[in-house]
Design a protein around this nucleic acid. Structure first.
Lengths: 138, 138
DNA sequence: CACTTACTTTGGACAATGTCTAATTCGAGC
DNA sequence: GCTCGAATTAGACATTGTCCAAAGTAAGTG
């Protein structure tokens, strides 16, 4: 994720300890934390960071296109650092585990003109739901 | 929607003025109201209906499979009475307008085994995003 | 028709998530 | 080092949803 910090600095992002910590928390594969989870983990590294800053920073990262906002449950938004490779999500209906997945084909092409109601359609978001191996075993 | 009332009564649903009003509000095509919108419209017909009852009733309708819960924005849940015909949603990114759409093919089949991570996948939810004709004109 | 009982409704307190603001602090260029 | 605009902070506030105990009511029974 140091590439991220480099990219952001290059874009004129003022670097602060708080922003660095938030970026560090959002590193990894299949990471889909809520704002609150990001805040908890950030506090572990930098105890005086405030909730507002975490929200601000997450919002900025989303605007910059470095992080995606996904809503796989209808509770809190989750933040996905894997923004540079298009993907969809597979969610466990029991425990809420989330995996990034890559379906074949382009779902956008599956919506016929007759079903577009004159909209200019630019994006599609797919959420698969099922039961993960852990929950199936239990 | 009187069929709905019949079906519910047949399933042992106790009929009350409040439940009737909520069911009436949820009648029509391309209806995707939030709980709060349902409440406002219900109050117009039955001023003393409470917020808790609207939430309760919506929850019951969802459990009974008569209404779907959809989350096209990450604010409030919306309730879709078109539960008996499988469909997906097309959302205007500017004004939030929602249409029911029917893509060709089965998106479930587009997720290869290698991308299922051992999950038992049972359902898929697709949200198309774009700009509606009204907003494009403005 | 009146009774009874279990199911529903109600209002308000509470919880979770997110937004906003004014005052303070701080990064980084000169 | 300064300076200044940008970032951070604490906490109030807003929105959406849940929970509970008390009161009300639908509908079967006799």
């Amino acid at each position: 994720m140091s590439d991220l910090l480099e990219r952001l600095r290059g874009r004129g992002w003022r670097m602060t300890a708080q922003r660095r910590v938030v970026a560090e928390v959002l590193d990894g594969e299949h990471v889909h934390l809520t704002a609150d989870e990001v805040h908890s983990r950030a506090v572990a590294k930098l105890p005086e960071i405030s909730r507002a800053t975490v929200y601000n920073t997450l919002g900025e990262l989303v605007s910059l296109g470095e992080v995606l906002e996904v809503s796989t449950d209808q509770r809190a938004k989750r933040y996905d650092p894997n923004a540079h490779q298009p993907h969809h999500h597979l969610v466990c209906a029991r425990c809420g585990a989330i995996r990034d997945v890559h379906p074949v084909g382009n779902p956008l092409a599956d919506l016929p003109d007759s079903e577009r109601f004159g909209f200019t359609v630019s994006d599609v978001e797919v959420t698969y739901r099922g039961v993960c191996p852990n929950c199936a075993a239990a």
